[in-house]
Amino acid sequence: MRALLPLAAALLMIGCASSTMEAARTGQPGARLDSQKAPEIVAQCIQFSWQEETRFGVDASGYLEPRKAGGFTVYTREAELFVDVYPQAGGTRVDYYAQKSDMVALQRKAAAATCL
Rank of each mutant, 00 (worst) to 15 (best):
A113Q: 13
V74K: 07
Q107N: 12
A10P: 06
Q51F: 11
I41Y: 04
L33G: 03
A8E: 10
K109M: 15
E78W: 15
C45N: 09
A24H: 00
A79D: 02
G91E: 05
V83A: 13
G70Q: 06
L33K: 04
Q51S: 12
L81I: 11
D102Q: 02
Y96V: 05
C115K: 02
L12E: 13
V85P: 04
A23R: 10
A9G: 11
V58Y: 11
E52T: 12
A111H: 06
A89R: 06
P6H: 07
P39A: 05
A89S: 13
I14V: 15
A111Y: 07
L5H: 11
M103L: 14
G90A: 05
P87L: 11
Y75H: 14
A110N: 05
G27K: 07
E52F: 13
E78Q: 14
E40S: 03
V94K: 02
S35H: 09
P39D: 03
A17G: 08
E53S: 08
A10R: 10
C115T: 02
I14D: 12
R93Q: 08
R25A: 13
A24Y: 05
A69Y: 00
F48Q: 15
V83C: 13
T114S: 14
I46F: 00
S19F: 14
G70D: 09
R93L: 08
A110Y: 00
Q44L: 13
K100C: 12
G70M: 08
T92I: 06
R67P: 00
A60D: 02
A60C: 10
A17C: 03
A79G: 03
A60I: 10
A111C: 12
A9R: 13
T76C: 09
I14N: 11
W50N: 06
R77M: 14
Q107W: 12
Y75M: 14
V83E: 10
A8V: 07
T92P: 01
W50P: 08
D34M: 15
V94H: 05
E40G: 05
R93W: 04
L4S: 14
V104P: 01
A43V: 04
L116S: 08
A24V: 04
M103I: 14
E52D: 15
T92C: 04
A89T: 07
E22W: 06
Q99I: 05
K37C: 08
Q36H: 11
E53N: 00
A113M: 12
A89E: 12
F82I: 01
